[in-house]
Simulated scan of single mutants.
Amino acid sequence: MLPRLVLLAFVWGVNETLQLPVWLALCVIAADAVILLGQLRHYHLRAEDHIRDTGAMALSWGGYLMCLLVTAACVILWWDMILIATRAPAGETFETRMRRERAALYVLAPDATGQRLRFEGEITYGLTTRVQALLETGPELREIELTSPGGHVYEARGAAQAITAAGLDTVARGDCTSACTLLFIAGTRRRLAPGARLGFHGYGLAQAVHLPSYDIAAAEARDMAYVLSRGISRDFASRMFATPAQSMWYPDEDTLRAAGVLRD
């Protein structure tokens, strides 16, 4: 019992003084659980020997009750350790936490040469600000590589404007679909990496929610004008926005080049 009380005190002390990384907290909990199981097994064997030798059960059953209480205390401390490990850092504001969680949805970083910016993941709030910041601190950037299933079209518009203003070229790697195509079209020169695909569809917001104060048709018309301003043919743009939001249109490379989507 004494070794277990010492371990309980140790775990309690860690919870009171430290915020362990999640992986380390799980390792500590797993190790303590293995030790606890060994201690419970040891007590059970000793209790059986005591009952067999003396015939007295009261003391042994009291020990089992103590084991139950100790196990409950361990579970409480383990759960507390998990909560501490996963809570937001001390002093972090709600805005900072939301920014950190959104940034975790994508990767945005320059490559080793400093001339290519790599974006992979979901387009979410805060992306435009991060793109602008990287462009300001990395004037040698010449190209942005895109891999994304899309995301917030409003944020994609802002990031696309930043890409165009910086004169970056764009290259799609893997799938660049939905709102990601707005970023791709923003490039001065636009190309596909081997095996890459561009996926297009129209707006789905009108069917998903009713927003009486938001003109869906006007928003789509604004994006249509932007697409046309980037040298895309009207026939291609019309089919792009006519594609139902529940499906995806993947035009082949010849079609993309003929429509002006790809540009050397």
Results as ranks from 00 to 15, higher is better:
T181E: 01
V261N: 08
D80A: 13
R263C: 09
L65V: 12
V209G: 00
Q246F: 05
A109G: 00
G91E: 05
R189N: 15
R157W: 07
T164W: 06
D215A: 07
R173M: 09
V14E: 04
V28D: 00
M224E: 04
H201P: 04
P89C: 02
A56V: 03
E143S: 03
Q39V: 07
L127H: 09
W61C: 06
T86A: 02
D111Y: 01
Y203G: 15
E155A: 10
A133F: 01
A9D: 13
L168K: 11
L256R: 06
I84Y: 00
R173L: 04
L45P: 00
R41Y: 10
G167K: 08
V171C: 12
E48N: 09
S60N: 01
V171A: 11
D235A: 15
R46Q: 14
A221D: 13
G167S: 06
I29R: 06
D49W: 14
R116V: 14
L262P: 05
G199N: 03
M224V: 06
G63Q: 14
G62S: 08
L168R: 07
R46L: 13
Y43N: 03
L26Q: 11
Y250E: 09
T147M: 04
R41G: 12
H152K: 09
L228G: 04
L69S: 09
R189L: 02
P251G: 09
G62M: 13
H44F: 07
A186D: 07
T170K: 10
F236H: 05
A73L: 14
Y203Q: 12
A259Y: 08
R52G: 02
Y64M: 04
D169W: 02
L134P: 04
Y43S: 06
L2G: 05
W79S: 04
Y226Q: 07
H50G: 01
P21I: 13
W23D: 13
M66Q: 03
I35T: 06
Y203S: 15
I29P: 00
L26F: 04
E155H: 08
G260V: 07
A103H: 12
D215T: 06
P3H: 08
A186F: 12
M81S: 15
L36I: 02
G114I: 12
R97L: 13
T86R: 14
A172C: 15
G158D: 11
M240D: 02
V153K: 03
E16W: 05
C27S: 11
G151W: 14
A156N: 09
T188V: 08
W79R: 08
A165F: 06
R102E: 13
A109Q: 14
R4E: 11
R41S: 11
I51M: 15
F200Y: 13
L228H: 02
P89A: 11
A217E: 14
L18W: 12
A160C: 10
P89W: 04
Y43L: 09
L135W: 07
R142V: 03
W78T: 01
A221G: 15
P21H: 03
F236P: 04
C67T: 00
F184E: 06
A103L: 07
A30K: 12
G138K: 03
T93D: 01
R190T: 04
L37D: 05
R116N: 11
E220Y: 00
S238E: 14
D252T: 02
L2H: 10
H210N: 05
L198C: 11
L146F: 05
A33E: 11
A109T: 15
A103T: 09
C74I: 00
T86K: 07
V131N: 09
A172T: 02
A218S: 09
H42F: 10
